[in-house]
Amino acid sequence: MSLLVTAFDGIAFGCLLFVLAVGLTMIFGLLDVLNLAHGALYMAGGYLAFLVIGEVPTSLAVFIGVALLAVVAGLVLGGGLSVAIRPLTRRGHLDQALLTMGLAILLSEFLLQVADRGFHSLAAPRGLDGSIAGSYPAYRVAVIVAGLAIAGATFWIFERTRAGALVRAAVDDPEMLAASGVNVRRIRLSVVLAGCALATLAGVLGGPLLNLRAGLDTEVLVLALIVIVVGGLASIRGAALGALLIGQVQTLGVALVPELAAYLLFAVMAAVLLWRPAGLFGRAT
């Protein structure tokens, strides 16, 4: 019974990881840019919500309003990122990594200066701050609902809409697409904006679970990187599978082999890469 609860909790955690990581994988897939500021963007969403509503429970409407505000902030920061990254288009991953790492330090230190360096957390909104049957936090169910909704919307946009078809075409053959009169730059920009907005949204969604503190940006960045690398980079399907797998590793896995808990996360990633050197859904190069 308790293992079932643990597995269910792994789904909640996996849903949060999906929202956190999917933007990273989108930007990597379309722009071939490794955005190491992704963790700082997550942190920006969380701290923005903290600065607006503080640590006391608010109504669900206010909470959703703040989440939307974070999305707007993510769009703005995404605009900044796409301007910053443009001169580096052909410079390779490592230069982009250095740039986005610098930007991540600037953003996260700025947030800690504006708020403070203390430990903070977001409270779950009223109505979701209790427990179901006194033994499972209602907010985590809400995270699953929100995660599935966001995943569904992402899949729908990418697989079923014209916009999604254009994005996929831009991945496969940008020259061809440009030749047929489509503004590829605009497609790229919208993917960066969407990816960054998902990161800041994840910051609000995860606020009540992962808290807010110095060093959070690196911690969630590493989690997101593990999720997308296990999934095979650059595919939304891979990110979803990676997120669910890592969610279970971090819950069911550590419950089953607690003595290996400290090694488990990285050992699983290493094992996946030995088995499939380009991730579970990765195309071998």
Binding site: L225, M269, L273, P277
Partner: peptide
């Protein structure tokens, strides 16, 4: 290779 090498060495 590449990014996967990066993450493997991180592990």
């Amino acid at each position: 290779r590449g990014f996967f090498f990066l993450m493997f060495t991180l592990a």
